[in-house]
Amino acid sequence: MLDNLQLFVDAPFLLIQVLLDGILFGAIFAIAAYGMALVWGVMNVINIVQGEFVMLGGFITFQLTLWGIHPLFGIPVAAAVLFVIGIALYYGVIRRVVDKDMFISLLATFGLSILLQQLMNQIWGGDVRTAQSGLGTWFLFDYTVTVGQIKVVACVGALILGLILIVFLKKSRLGQAIRATAQNPRAAQVLGINTDKVFAATYGINAALCGAAGSLVVMAYSVHPYIGLPYTVRSFMIVIVAGLGNLPGVILAGLGLGAAENFAAFILGAQFQVAFVFCLLIVILVVRNTLLRRKRKYLK
């Protein structure tokens, strides 16, 4: 561990490399986390099927490349297809559990995630799939620091999507309806908002975000029917760290967590990367809880 720290002193460019890799990795998680924040905040559903949506977006993009279409077109296509799938799943399944106990919706989305895994496995097989974006690498500081361009696309995409989402929620009619529903579904209903439609749109938008993220994953990393779970877990963590209903916080938490875990992997070894993230989560929850408690004291 000390050897690894020593490396930073010997080769300071590594600091930048590790930081950049982490941030760019975190950006993709941040996109999936937007969706989770939305669904959680608006519908009070923790969407376990998040990671499978991401993988499905990746597979759709992979399918496009099989048809000779450039994978970058996969980003909007996957988002559009997933939007439709999201709406369909809402009317088929989620709608029946949305006002039930959270445990029920956990079970329902968990079931969906198994279903999607098996379907993807049936359609595309159990192989690891990737798509070539054809984008190259940027070199900084005389080849010592490298930045994959596709990861930059992912990061910029995450920022843009985040911005669009924030503006959409603030300004558009549907966005306002979504926020109203999040605050109080019953009151929103009394005021004439069709909460059923709002929920459907929310779930569709979430799936579309995941689809776009998946498209980036297949170009920058790889997809496989059974490796969706980490995306679910990371989005969950990012939302917890950012705080529910704090969309600008989501992108910051996503990038920050990405960087933190990459440093952990470098210094402690890759085997501690995930453990570190979870320890960090516990620390953040404890700190947040004490801060909140202090606030409550002042309120008295």
Binding site: L7, V18, G22, P230, N262, F263, A265, A270, Q273
Partner: peptide, 22 residues
């Protein structure tokens, strides 16, 4: 270097950065 990659991980940038340095 003797890194163990977590099965759920889809990224080995940290390990490769170390390889680059060493």
């Amino acid at each position: 270097i003797d890194d163990q990659l977590p099965p759920e991980l889809n990224d080995m940038a940290a390990t490769l950065a170390k390889v680059k340095a060493l």
